[in-house]
Nucleic acid binder design. Structure first.
Lengths: 138, 138
DNA sequence: CGGAATCCCATTCGATACTG
DNA sequence: CAGTATCGAATGGGATTCCG
């Protein structure tokens, strides 16, 4: 017996892996800040509160769908607050919470790392491309 | 005239946005470390060099395809080194470079932030779900 | 103005099978 | 052991349209 070993073993491994991820706050939050738009929104709001259309203009390339989706998930996580002012044309402001500010600081650290080591990465990348792309080319 | 305003304007905005991203090292590297598997591989290698199959076992849930793909891109960026020992069964070791170690440190900082603020996020999330999910539910 | 809902395409990812 | 190749499923994300 045990014809199903290989497949089932990975399936079970995957199960345990999922359980691990669920129990690991790091991965949950890493996934959150990993999002392409999240970092841009947080960076845009770091300077101060903005309205929906201001964000759309500042980020410049985001579709309304993704902007709304991103803002909702960030609001849900307590990264920012959404304030509706029921004037005639509705006005909605978004602002970072203290938690959001601390996230902005973290992203600043990431940015610092990226700027510090970008040269190394760039160099390594070019060398790798040269070595693998033209090792035996005429 | 100007029937195409809305769509075309965003298209052009998108173009500029792409140009911005290309010139911004932060986003390039943020995208790299954002990857779900990258962080796991770096974390796994932080303790010391590992062989391919060791990594597959330690990460437990990754397909060979993604593992190889992740390792290649990290090698390309100078995050880790790949050492082939041409013994009878081929042996390949992966090890973090100094650059990779610094990235591991950064991920540690992210992890610290996540663990520090996980409660807040969790609380905010539950509150949000409660408020939006059952305000008028029977 | 600020958003919700729908459609749909492109990329990505995972599982499997095969090779050196 | 350490990959590569291929296929199908899932997902993300953009455009569009309509509501309050």
């Amino acid at each position: 017996m045990a014809t199903t070993t290989a497949a089932q073993r990975r399936e079970q491994a995957r199960f345990e892996y999922d359980a691990f991820l669920r129990s690991c706050p790091t991965n949950q939050l890493l996934d959150r800040i990993s999002d392409k738009w999240v970092s841009l929104v947080v960076a845009a709001l770091a300077a101060g509160p903005l309205r929906y259309s201001d964000l759309a203009r500042k980020i410049a390339g985001v579709s309304p769908k993704m902007l709304t989706q991103t803002l909702r998930s960030l609001e849900r996580d307590g990264i920012l607050t959404r304030t509706v002012t029921p004037s005639v044309p509705v006005r909605v402001d978004y602002e970072l919470t203290p938690l959001g500010s601390s996230l902005a600081h973290l992203l600043t650290a990431v940015k610092a790392w990226a700027e510090t080591h970008f040269d190394e990465v760039h160099t390594a990348r070019e060398r790798y491309d040269t070595e693998t792309d033209a090792p035996s080319a005429p």
